[in-house]
Design a protein around this nucleic acid. Structure first.
Lengths: 197, 197
DNA sequence: TGTAATCGAAACGGAACGTCTGGTATGGTA
DNA sequence: TACCATACCAGACGTTCCGTTTCGATTACA
């Protein structure tokens, strides 16, 4: 809902079915046509809606796509495996699932390109994308500290960028299939890198 | 030269000054207008050249931009600092300089988006981008092994993706200013992560 | 009951695409 | 030296999508 334009208070209310149809059509087109091939006209046609109804809600294609794709605010906590490496491994696996999801993987590069000249929006993407991850990462570190497995002064931001950056580099840039071992190896490298500082 | 279309053998040869003018105008426009705002017509006008001369050499905007921006094949070796961490730190600093260069930073997201549906080209970007880095990384590890500082079985690809991914995540997505400490911290984390496996 | 914002549909001018046709210039080949 | 294939610039072309605007009809809140 972040990028939607506000509705007026008087007059005929917006039809929620129209809203849903637009978002649904956007996701569908993203997945089987790609970000570049997606057009506002195409979304309108697929949703059985006038262009007007779209421009009334979103200021453009990037804003529409962002809301359509990155709305799932899943905050499932990381289960306690008993070890820091185990917890981080699961966290990385979640990260892979998230970035490798069809809609997200296809949309992200295009969004970054379209928001290239808007640092504020890029920053917002990063926040929205990593807010949940960061919260869970902090919790995982707290558990490790409680176990005495970890000294204080954990560089959370660096670790966040390392984990997310590495995974994103695979999925977004290389597009290579993520091997099942990657999360474990990556987690092991980062965790041992932190613990023996 | 990778994405250029081949020249014919007979007839008038292509003018190398035209070629240079096109590439130069492309870089200039990328830097002060952005990837999205760059158009073939604009490049032609700025270069004092006909559209025809551009389409004769490149099949489209992405190919042109790629060649214009990622042609510098600098392979300066990493100086031997005497420690693995020192060497990797310098390597990361080079990486930051490369990705934070105005033209590269502005062009990369757009290129990835335009090549989204062409895995082969995306892979090629990764190779071209990291080929030099990989070679230098391997050399740095060899030196460390000769010093007895490192055991065998170094996961080079994982390290490459971690270093490049983290840096790219800062510059490309976050767009945050890279602090001078980042290369040292990142190098320290990764290196200790490897050494104590 | 009236008012204001919604709805789908369609037309609008603008911008950029990639192709193509002129007319001219240039250099290797015969 | 004459030829000819190609490169050069300029501009016109049809297409696509953009984002805005108009239209008449619809819908709820005041």
């Amino acid at each position: 809902m972040v990028y939607s334009m506000p509705a007026r208070t008087h007059g005929r209310p917006r039809d929620s079915r129209t809203h849903a149809a637009i978002l649904s059509a956007t996701v569908a087109l993203i997945v089987d046509a790609g970000y570049g091939a997606l057009t506002i006209v195409g979304v309108a046609a697929r949703a059985g809606v006038g262009k007007d109804a779209i421009y009334r809600r979103w200021s453009g294609k990037p804003e529409l796509v962002y809301e359509a794709v990155f709305t799932s605010a899943d905050a499932d906590p990381i289960p306690d495996t008993g070890t820091l490496i185990g917890d981080v491994t699961i966290l990385v696996e979640r990260l892979v699932d998230e970035f490798a999801a069809p809609a997200a993987a296809v949309a992200l590069p295009g969004l970054l390109a379209d928001f290239a000249d808007q640092p504020a929006l890029r920053m917002r993407i990063r926040e929205d994308l990593l807010a949940g991850v960061k919260a869970r990462l902090v919790e995982v570190f707290d558990r490790a500290a409680a176990r005495g497995e970890l000294v204080a002064d954990v560089p959370v931001e660096l670790i966040l960028d390392s984990l997310a950056g590495t995974v994103l580099f695979h999925v977004g840039l290389v597009g290579a299939p993520v091997t099942p071992e990657l999360p474990r190896h990556l987690a092991a490298m980062v965790v041992t890198g932190i613990k023996t500082r």
